[in-house]
Every structure is written in C-alpha cells, then in structure tokens.
C-alpha cells in the first residue's frame, strides 16, 4: 500500500521536472546546493582532455557536508532535506546527464568539512550536453551570493582560464564585486574559450 502511494506521489511530483538544457545549468544548480549548505568557498573546475576524450566537472565546497548515509542516498530523488517539496532533483538530474553521455558522478562529503561532486562525461558522446553559457552561470552565482567566494578554472587540453573572487575582491578594495562593470569584465573573460594557439590573445579578451 505504502509503495503504491509513493509511486503515485512520484508521478505527480515529477510532472514539473524539466531537463537541464546544458551543463552550465547543472553547474549553477549543484553550486546552489553548496551555497544552501552554508559554503563560503566553492571551487568549480571544468577540465576537458581531448586525448582521453573526457570532460570532468568538479564542484567542491566547504559547507556543512553530509554524513555517509546521506551521501549514499543523495542520488535518489526522494532524498532531500528541503521542506518545501518532497523530492530533490538536482543531483539525480546531473547523474542522468552524465550517464547518458557515458559518464558518472561521484560524491564525497564529510560533515562540517564539505562536499565534492565530480561528474565525468565522454566528451565526444553524441548525448553529451554542451557546456552552454558558463559565463552567465558564474555571473548569476556571484550576483546572487556576493559574500561567497568562488574559484573557477576551465581547462581545455591544459590551457586554462582562471578566476578567484578573493583576488578580485582584494583588488576592488571595498567596491562591491556585483558592480555591473566588474561582472561584465568577468563575463568577457569567461565567455572566451581557452585556446592552445592563442595564449597571448587571451589577455585581450579580459581587457575588452
């Protein structure tokens, strides 16, 4: 009886579920878990390796973490600590996107220390979602959480784009990181794809 009721509930509650269109939206979503967990520093790394045909996204936070039992349950949509809705979809959706692209997710966490979510994908897989607008994701995160610090690194075959909001805040010396010209600068830097042959040109992007 209980199982039947639960199944009905599942169908009803899942009706709203939409797919994440691209990986940058998954990243926004998983990072929002970290800010909800009280993280003050969040690392976001997106590494692509064409030789290995892998893409790996790592999101690491220093939030409240989860105990072992929670970590094993978290891929189940019925696992949530939120009180406004009975299902948690963020992690299950990410896992689904990874699986569809020949990959998987791995979660490690420690109470009072933090959480690391690693999603890996077969880069060339036909069902691998594109990264999408990662610059918009980072700007939305910084704008919505100005007191949280973010370390961002994107690398394609070893060529990287880096951002550390702690360094930016230090340079800004009291001026808010949410000032539109600052966010535009960040947007420009992150919209450019890191490219191997363009090591010098990449500085130009940041200055526009």
């Amino acid at each position: 009886m209980k199982t039947a009721a639960r199944t009905t509930g599942r169908a009803a509650e899942r009706r709203w579920t939409a797919e994440m269109e691209d990986l940058s939206l998954h990243i926004l979503d998983v990072v929002e878990n970290a800010t909800a967990a009280g993280a003050t520093l969040i690392e976001i790394r997106i590494h692509e390796d064409s030789r290995k045909d892998r893409m790996v996204i790592t999101i690491k936070d220093n939030g409240q973490g989860m105990d072992g039992e929670m970590v094993t349950k978290v891929k189940d949509p019925f696992c949530t600590t939120r009180t406004t809705r009975r299902v948690g979809m963020g992690i299950p959706l990410l896992e689904q996107s990874a699986r569809e692209a020949g990959g998987s997710i791995e979660i490690t966490s420690e109470p009072n220390v933090g959480t690391e979510v690693v999603a890996s994908f077969c880069a060339s897989h036909i069902d691998r979602k594109p990264l999408g607008d990662i610059a918009a994701t980072m700007v939305a995160l910084i704008l919505g959480n100005p007191d949280v610090d973010f370390i961002y690194q994107r690398s394609i075959d070893g060529v990287t784009t880096d951002l550390d909001t702690r360094e930016i805040k230090e340079q800004l010396d009291g001026v808010s990181i949410t000032a539109p010209p600052v966010l535009n600068l960040i947007q420009d830097l992150l919209s450019a794809t890191p490219e191997g042959e363009d090591l010098n040109g990449s500085d130009q992007t940041a200055s526009s």
């Binding site: 060529v159 990287t160 784009t161 880096d162 951002l163 360094e167 930016i168 340079q171 800004l172 010396d173 001026v175 808010s176 000032a179 010209p181 600052v182 600068l185 960040i186 830097l189 450019a192 890191p194 090591l199 990449s202 500085d203 992007t205 940041a206 200055s207």
Partner: peptide, 16 residues
Amino acid sequence: MAKLRIEDLKRIKEGV
C-alpha cells in the same frame, strides 16, 4: 593562462 587584469579592476574601482 587567461585571467582578469589587475589594471582593469583598478580602473573599474576608480569608476565605481
């Protein structure tokens, strides 16, 4: 490695 330039941040800081 692409990074934000300190000069740009300084310029913005003065403006804002």
